[in-house]
């Protein structure tokens, strides 16, 4: 029963989604709208569980490892301050509020910094991975080289030739490979979904 009821629910919800996909009538669309609202409600209801988990793991870590205490404290203070700073709509939308300042002067630079680290990691990964070990690796290397060359200024007509060649690479071989993967992914997703609906695939519920 513990497994059968969730599986029945999965089947029922899946069938409703399939039916609404092929039935455009207002009744079906209203049902679809309500089901989408449910997803939002479930997400919102699950949020306190997430917050509890975050706080619990932070406190446990602080208790267990003295070195972690400072970071745990920063996490808890940051969490509390952001909640308080955004309690009222006006505090949230005003450009001079604490919430906006925290957003503009802490969150924005911190996120931008983390994203910019990607450039360093790409350089490092390219340095290690782009080696012409085999004929295929050499093709990959040359292609990557040509595509990156697009961003390096070159005298005309080299620059235009390169831009046209890069466009061809992106639109023909790149797209062929991507479509092949996408067709596989699409079919795989349909198969996986049918398996889920029929209760064949149940590993996400802990298996049999």
């Amino acid at each position: 029963m513990k497994k059968q009821l969730p599986m029945f629910l999965v089947f029922l919800c899946g069938m409703i989604m399939i039916v609404q996909f092929v039935v455009p009538h207002e009744y079906s669309q209203t049902l679809f709208q309500h089901s989408q609202d449910f997803v939002i409600v479930i997400g919102v209801l699950a949020l306190p569980i997430g917050i509890y988990s975050l706080m619990k793991s932070t406190v446990t870590k602080a208790r267990r490892e003295p070195k972690e205490r400072l970071y745990s404290l920063i996490t808890i203070i940051g969490f509390a301050v952001m909640i308080i700073a955004g309690l009222k709509r006006d505090w949230f939308t005003s450009s001079t509020s604490l919430s906006s300042n925290l957003f503009n002067y802490i969150l924005v630079p911190a996120q931008a910094t983390l994203f910019s680290m990607l450039a360093f990691y790409i350089a490092s990964a390219a340095y290690r991975a782009f080696r012409a070990r085999t004929a295929l690796a050499a093709v990959l290397l040359i292609t990557a080289f040509v595509v990156m060359l697009r961003l390096i200024p070159m005298p005309e007509p080299l620059s235009t030739w390169n831009a046209e060649f890069v466009r061809w690479i992106l639109e023909v071989p790149n797209m062929a490979a991507k479509r092949a993967i996408l067709i596989g992914v699409g079919l795989g997703a349909v198969t996986y979904s049918i398996k889920l609906l029929l209760g064949i695939e149940r590993a996400y519920m802990g298996g049999d």
Binding site: Y127, M148, L151, I152
Partner: peptide, 24 residues
């Protein structure tokens, strides 16, 4: 922003050339 992107790409290209020379 373009000059920043250009210099960083130029460096990555140089690094790829260097690593392949060493590899060969």
């Amino acid at each position: 922003g373009i000059p920043y992107q250009t210099t960083s790409h130029a460096v990555i290209l140089c690094l790829i050339i260097v690593t392949n020379i060493a590899f060969f």
